[in-house]
Amino acid sequence: MIDVKGLTKSFGDHLVLDHIDEHIHQGEKVAVIGPSGSGKSTFLRCLNLLEEPTSGTITFEGVDITDPQTDINKLRSRMGMVFQQFNLFPHLSVRENICLAPVKLKLMTKDQAEERAQELLKRVGLPDKADAYPKQLSGGQQQRIAIARALAMNPDMMLFDEPTSALDPEMVGEVLEIMKELADDGMTMVVVTHEMGFARSVATRVLFMDKGKIAEQGPPEPFFSAPQHPRLREFLSKVL
């Protein structure tokens, strides 16, 4: 579904991603873990070109998205993204947050979008919050709305950058629960996370990033029980 070849990213002379090759298939749920500063967010943000790769190619659904001729907006509308800080639009109601992009991009009429919004709100367990404003909601609720907002575009793939790291501990569960349901529905997902329990139980594959490289990867079973790379062993011993 998405194919990454020789992906390199530097900020100035600071090399953050070092020739990454990776292929993510349709329906896979990939968890990305690794120490702070290892390039996890940068890797994820390169996938929808929020960061411009320094070199390398990324092919999504057969289209080379790093080609300047590609319509990047069209591509992004098929990849949902959920941020650590939620990034809901504070001046818009929950309904407007969800409907804005589908309506402005003329993918749906206003009525269709509102109906879809209601459906999605039900799905994330907040059917009565359509008229609320982001500031009136808890962090966990905001993140669930952010997931609904991304889903409103009917994306083929969802990217999550530490979706629960900014949440109070008691709210982490509700967001992970939504993500798990999404995974069960067959969504292709790439999730940067520090939630090892989630990675273990939901991911079909785990990537360990270290110093701009994918140092080790595999299905959660041997990955967590029999880590090979010394850096991964050290990392797991700290977080587990």
Binding site: N73, L75, R78, G80, F83, Q85, K104, R149, A150
Partner: peptide, 13 residues
């Protein structure tokens, strides 16, 4: 906040 722009752009706007 730059996150607002990123959220908008990530939706395809």
């Amino acid at each position: 906040d730059l996150g607002q722009t990123e959220a908008g752009r990530s939706l395809g706007l």
